[in-house]
Computed example of a mutant assay.
Amino acid sequence: MTALKDIADKVRSKNAGPFWLTLDVFCGTAEAFARISSGLDTGLVADMFKADPATLKRFDMPELNVVKFSMPRPAVQGTHADRDMHGASFAVLLGEIEIR
């Protein structure tokens, strides 16, 4: 198995407003997209971020070679409980997921 970050061109996370995060996996090629799309388990992503699977949204975009996730932020942006004001650190964790 190989880490997602070693297959994808770029793994990025960012705020999608103060209540949601977006995680993007830019695959680069159709072959990388096919491998990542089929090997990346949505339930595993939900577990990794302690997100409710019912609120985690996944978008596979083969025409762009991108897999995208959107999920509620664990804490509202800018509040005392928010540990990542910009949502950028989530990409590092996502990049560590092993792909078959």
Results as ranks from 00 to 15, higher is better:
residue 49 F to Q: 00
residue 66 V to M: 11
residue 74 P to D: 01
residue 2 T to C: 05
residue 75 A to H: 10
residue 58 R to L: 00
residue 39 G to P: 10
residue 43 G to P: 07
residue 84 D to C: 03
residue 84 D to S: 05
residue 21 L to Q: 02
residue 68 K to C: 09
residue 75 A to T: 03
residue 55 T to I: 14
residue 83 R to G: 11
residue 5 K to I: 06
residue 95 G to Y: 10
residue 31 E to A: 15
residue 95 G to M: 10
residue 30 A to Q: 14
residue 22 T to F: 00
residue 72 P to C: 02
residue 7 I to Y: 07
residue 7 I to K: 02
residue 64 L to D: 11
residue 77 Q to H: 01
residue 69 F to L: 06
residue 51 A to F: 01
residue 76 V to T: 14
residue 30 A to N: 13
residue 4 L to R: 04
residue 69 F to M: 05
residue 15 N to C: 06
residue 81 A to M: 07
residue 97 I to F: 09
residue 60 D to K: 03
residue 59 F to S: 07
residue 100 R to N: 14
residue 42 T to C: 10
residue 6 D to E: 15
residue 75 A to I: 07
residue 13 S to E: 06
residue 46 A to Y: 08
residue 48 M to Q: 10
residue 99 I to M: 05
residue 64 L to V: 09
residue 69 F to P: 02
residue 93 L to M: 12
residue 84 D to N: 03
residue 40 L to P: 02
residue 76 V to E: 11
residue 68 K to L: 08
residue 36 I to L: 14
residue 49 F to K: 00
residue 26 F to M: 05
residue 95 G to E: 06
residue 54 A to S: 13
residue 5 K to P: 00
residue 63 E to N: 12
residue 95 G to T: 07
residue 66 V to E: 02
residue 67 V to W: 05
residue 29 T to M: 12
residue 14 K to I: 09
residue 31 E to D: 15
residue 63 E to A: 12
residue 2 T to N: 13
residue 77 Q to R: 13
residue 38 S to G: 11
residue 22 T to W: 00
residue 99 I to F: 05
residue 91 A to S: 14
residue 28 G to Q: 04
residue 19 F to N: 09
residue 67 V to F: 04
residue 12 R to T: 15
residue 16 A to L: 15
residue 12 R to L: 15
residue 22 T to C: 02
residue 51 A to D: 02
residue 81 A to I: 02
residue 52 D to S: 11
residue 16 A to M: 13
